[in-house]
Computed example of a mutant assay.
Amino acid sequence: MGFIFSKSMSDTLKSQQELALVNSRLQLERQILMQNQMRERQMAMQIAWTREFLKYFGLFFGLTAVGLTTGAMKKKKPGLLLPIVPLSFILAYQYDMGYGTLLQRMKGEAEKILDTDSALLELPKGAITFEGLEKARRAQSKFFVEK
C-alpha cells in the first residue's frame, strides 16, 4: 500500500515539476518579448524625435545659411560663412540618423563588437554575483542600523 501511495506521490510531484517548468518557460518568453517590444518602441520614439528635431534644425540651418551668405556678400567678409560648416555637419548627422543608414551601420558595428571585441564589454570587477549583492546589502543595513 505504501509503495502505491509513494509512486502516486512521485508521479504527482513529477507532473507538478513539469508544469512549473512549462510555466517558467512561458513567463521567460513573455518577458523577453515584452522587453523587445519596449526596446523597439523606445527606438521608434528616438527616431521620431530625431526626425522632428531635423525639421526645426533644417529650418534654422536654412535661415542661418541665407542670413550669413547675405551678410557675407554685403559686407564682403567671407569669414561670416564659417559657422555654416559645423552646422552642416550637425544637419547631415541628424538627417542620417532620421532618414539615412546610421542606425544600420551602428547595429553592424555593435554586432562586430559583440563578436570580436567582447572583452571591452566586461564589467569592472567582473559580473555581479548574489554573494556580492548580499555582502553590500548587509554592509548597508549595518550602516543604517548604527545611525
Rank of each mutant, 00 (worst) to 15 (best):
M1E: 10
M1P: 06
S6T: 14
S6P: 03
S8R: 10
T12G: 10
S15R: 09
E18K: 09
A20P: 02
N23R: 13
N23E: 13
L26W: 04
L26Y: 08
Q27D: 10
E29S: 08
Q31G: 13
I32D: 08
Q37H: 06
R39Q: 09
M43H: 09
I47Y: 04
E52L: 08
L54W: 00
F57T: 00
F57K: 00
F60C: 00
F61S: 05
F61D: 02
L63E: 03
T64N: 13
A65L: 15
T69I: 12
G71H: 08
A72P: 07
M73Q: 07
M73Y: 13
M73P: 00
K74A: 07
K74F: 10
K75F: 11
K77S: 13
G79C: 04
L81G: 08
L81Q: 03
V85R: 06
L87Q: 01
A92L: 13
Y93Q: 00
Y93E: 00
Y93T: 03
G98D: 03
L102V: 01
M106V: 03
M106K: 02
A110M: 04
K112C: 00
I113F: 01
L114Q: 06
D115S: 13
D115E: 12
D115F: 03
D117E: 14
A119G: 03
L123T: 06
L123M: 07
L123S: 11
K125W: 06
F130T: 11
L133V: 07
A136C: 08
R137V: 14
A139I: 12
F143L: 13
K147W: 10
